[in-house]
């Protein structure tokens, strides 16, 4: 799923020209739009002499039907502005920019990805949609996502005290697989026998 974080002032200000309209998307309420940071940035932009001509708060900017309709609703404000800053994920920015190709549209946010799919509370489990699911062999723990390196053939040797070399907050995925394996499928040799090479062209 996607989440956004508001950009720093310096990343935006130099690109703005003339009357600037802010459009913030408050959709995806299962995660949290950085509202406080957004308000702070807005104040900061104002004190930096940016000519903010207006502000519109919407949700689900990614839905092109809705965005289209709202575009008509706010046509005047949009037409009058020279620059439009969109505070949403990349999907929202692209949807909007696609509707007004002649106008400078800036993105006010950076988008990050979290485990799980949009619409749900972020999951502790992730699925990279690799198209060759091996969960059936790995006792339901995904090596593609639970291992920092996405290794398919066993652990790399970088784990210490069960934790990944990348972070002490992350359990080694392959150790988890192994531990569960010993409980559930001790005698199963399938995983040991297979050598897997990922197909990135699925």
């Amino acid at each position: 799923m996607l989440i956004t974080r508001v950009k720093k002032k310096d990343a935006i200000l130099s690109l703005c020209k003339g009357k600037t309209l802010l459009i913030a998307c408050f959709g995806c309420k299962e995660v949290h739009f950085e509202e406080k940071e957004y308000q702070a940035l807005k104040e900061d932009l104002k004190t930096s002499n940016l000519n903010i001509s207006g502000e519109i708060q919407l949700d689900y900017l990614c839905n092109d039907d809705y965005t289209n309709k709202r575009f008509e609703l706010h046509k005047k404000e949009i037409d009058e502005a020279e620059t439009i800053i969109i505070f949403s994920c990349g999907v929202g920015v692209q949807t909007f920019a696609g509707l007004i190709p002649g106008k400078t549209v800036l993105s006010g946010c950076d988008t990050y990805v979290l485990p799980g799919f949009s619409g749900f509370t972020p999951s502790s489990h992730d699925c990279e949609q690799c198209g060759e699911c091996m969960l059936g062999f790995t006792v339901g723990i995904c090596p593609v996502t639970a291992c920092s390196k996405g290794l398919l053939n066993g652990q790399c040797g970088g784990a210490k005290k069960g934790k990944c070399e990348v972070s002490k907050n992350k359990d080694c995925g392959w150790e988890r697989i192994y531990n569960r394996m010993t409980v559930l499928k001790k005698d199963d040799l399938t995983l040991k026998k297979m050598i897997r090479v990922r197909n990135y062209n699925k």
Partner: peptide, 18 residues
């Protein structure tokens, strides 16, 4: 969960769209 349109976002964390 983000409508059914084909726009995509790589969630790169350093949006270049501007």
């Amino acid at each position: 969960g983000i409508s059914l349109n084909p726009e995509k976002c790589g969630a790169c964390g350093e949006c270049y769209l501007s």
